[in-house]
Amino acid sequence: MIFSFEIPLLLLLLVTAAGAILVKDLMSAVLLLGSYSFFLSLVWAWLGAVDVAFVEAVVGAGLGTVLFLLTLFGTAPKDTRLRRPPPSLATLIVFPLLGVLLLYAADDLPEFGNPKSPASVHISPTYIEQSYQDTRTPNVVTAVLMDYRSLDTMGETVVIFTAGIACALLLRRNS
């Protein structure tokens, strides 16, 4: 019951991604990418990774959209229509093959949520048992991201912060 809700979310994601590729207008592609980030962060939230969802919402839906828009502002194209040549024969052959190969490889991966998979028996029990004593953070994913790997996350946060400052500066110049 828990996993079946992912199917509509993933369907929405697929439709949005395909739409972002196929749409005829640059603005619409930016909008669809924003929606894509919303759905992706819904998927993260459904999986319980609340921080990842929050970062996805901030970076993908907020900053990403605004940065794309500022690029459009700055370049001021007369015509934002996308022209795309029909795919070549090599593309048509290589990419389906690659897809089939990946699907074939994915068949050997351990099942999602399988308790006997290597990821679940190696280090996860340590995190699950000790993270609350170590960090006093109620969510395990948050504990891993923000406490055990906090330096890494700090680097990411600096990147986001820089992007935010750049956004604010550019917006101020425009107004």
Binding site: V30, G34, V58, A61, G62, T65, V66, L69
Partner: peptide, 9 residues
């Protein structure tokens, strides 16, 4: 965030 994105758009 929705406010910021939509207003910019």
């Amino acid at each position: 965030l929705n406010l910021v994105g939509s207003l910019a758009m």
